[in-house]
Design a protein around this nucleic acid. Sequence first.
DNA 1: CTCCAGATTTGGATCGTTCTAAATCAGGCA
DNA 2: TGCCTGATTTAGAACGATCCAAATCTGGAG
Lengths: 351, 351
Amino acid sequence: MESNTPIRRKITLSDIAAGCGVSRATVSLVLRGSPLVNRKTRARVEEELRRQGYVYNRMAANLRRRTSSGIALVLNELANPFFAEFAAGVDEVVGEAGFVTLLGCTNESPAREQAVLGSLIEHGPAGIILSPAEHSDASQVLAAVGAQTPLLLFNRELGGSLPEFAHWDRLTLDNQHGTRLATEHLIARGHRRIAFFGGHRDSSSCRQRHAGYAEAMQAAGLPIEPHWQVECAPTRLAAAAQTPALFAAAPAPTAAVCYNDAVALGLVLGLNQRGLHPGRDFALTGFDDIAEAQLSAPPLTTLAAAPRARGRQAAELLLQRLREPQAEPRHTIVPVQLVIRESSCAPSDRS
Amino acid sequence: MESNTPIRRKITLSDIAAGCGVSRATVSLVLRGSPLVNRKTRARVEEELRRQGYVYNRMAANLRRRTSSGIALVLNELANPFFAEFAAGVDEVVGEAGFVTLLGCTNESPAREQAVLGSLIEHGPAGIILSPAEHSDASQVLAAVGAQTPLLLFNRELGGSLPEFAHWDRLTLDNQHGTRLATEHLIARGHRRIAFFGGHRDSSSCRQRHAGYAEAMQAAGLPIEPHWQVECAPTRLAAAAQTPALFAAAPAPTAAVCYNDAVALGLVLGLNQRGLHPGRDFALTGFDDIAEAQLSAPPLTTLAAAPRARGRQAAELLLQRLREPQAEPRHTIVPVQLVIRESSCAPSDRS
DNA sequence: CTCCAGATTTGGATCGTTCTAAATCAGGCA
DNA sequence: TGCCTGATTTAGAACGATCCAAATCTGGAG
């Protein structure tokens, strides 16, 4: 099969330089928008760039500059809409800044995380945004990425202790304050017997969310029964299955603060199976405000984390760090917003 | 702030070569697993690589080989769970093959697509997987990526005509057959007045899906009223807002084949707002089988496209192409499966 | 004129691999 | 021993931009 376009050799800086009688160095300066070059020269060079159809070869530049113009984005789970939105936000800002996003997906496996980080680091990314897999360990991550590449931790804490010379930035949600708001909201609606439902207590985010709940209950002088604190995997299925545990003993709760939206949606299922009408007989709140939250029946009162905005923010924090490599490590805790919908009804006669 | 780890110069091939008394070339061969090197030598070099903690510098390799080990993945929309799953599938296979995914997100804007492609191409990706933005034009895309880099088109056709020398592979869903199945299913359930709802008619996938619907209606001898064909952006919000258009004139439809799941979920909202009970008073089907489809109220009858599998498939097709650059361009059409759930009820008295 | 400062421009080395062609080595055979 | 063959190894030139220090240019002051 013959191609009918001439396979012309790639145009390089030298071609442009030769084409308009200046040196490679000058062309390079023009390309990078340096103020050093004369107006007249710049115009001439730019014209020649257009004329020859030059395309910049970032691979060459990367080699010389010893760092690529890529930002590695390593996620524990891309299929989750929360992280998909997050990724979209990251990519927006990364792209605007002239970088490119190197994607890696670990599927919650620390082993895969090691492999992915190892592979990405070979490309010399300018920085890394990492949402760790469950049970991912700080020293392992450090071993994989080295101490030179700036890294921003998103969403979760790492297990193990962080060697003090790896000054990583962090961006996490204000989990504790969020569930505190949710709990206070339920209390304000008139609930007195409120459960905390779902999640695994050995995950940092679950501990924080539980703390916010406990704090609000305590502040209101409300007791917490042991069987109101039910752990389960943060999935719909597990949550539905664990629902009976809430009602295993008297007094039964009239409301529940759930670990996240997935758990809350599972609880909705579980309540329906018991013949309870969530949003009328039983109040509940979620966390994350995933797209389904506003569409479920009943629409879910939840804490909005605005994942796309978080993605943009993560990228901006990392770019900031690239600009000031020596600045103190930052820990940014972003507030979450209580979105009140119909699932957080007042207590009913029935409950 | 002082770091307490020595900032040691990066280890290079030369360091390894020097460290065990062979030439750089030999070490390079070892790294690439060439069969040319002697067992004994290979072992010695590998030991030294470990000892010095060498990390491969792909930027240098990329420059020399004139193509990077990146696969560009350019998506019209990442927030849509369908594409998020697709991306996850692509990344799996790309990673397994030792490549890295370069992500780019166009948000349905051809202008942004140009920018994203332009930026990615500078990194010399080995190949490109592109799910075009709406109204994206073949010649524009060609201008941005050049004729040298293999490209796989996913999901949509490009506008304009494809210059014959750009032999691009394609992977698309069997849209027409899918909606035909859905429509036939609704007809079998007893519906006679069926609408086609959502999407923009100038997108190829929408045209194909509409064709499948029209085909089934015609085959069954059923008429189609003009106001049963409602266009809107393929988002929940737009679909909810356009719902009244379906009922703007008599006779009202009793069922709708929706452009995709997002639209169907929006229609669910819109119907609820009108006091109609989807899955009881009105039947509807979606397309894609995103995760929310089976959890919505009512669970959605839809066409499963298995996006993660499609992602894996897309990556495999592209890798195949890298292995055989001269092979004939392939157009792969993947069948979709009708998943019957509760949204596609029989017509009720009410409707 | 000559000199100087500031504005531009430039040659040449450099980044760390891969590639090519040629060199070297080991062992068998005459 | 000397030659030949196949198996290994290697020197050195790429790849294409960036960096640095030094060269050149300009125009105004003395």
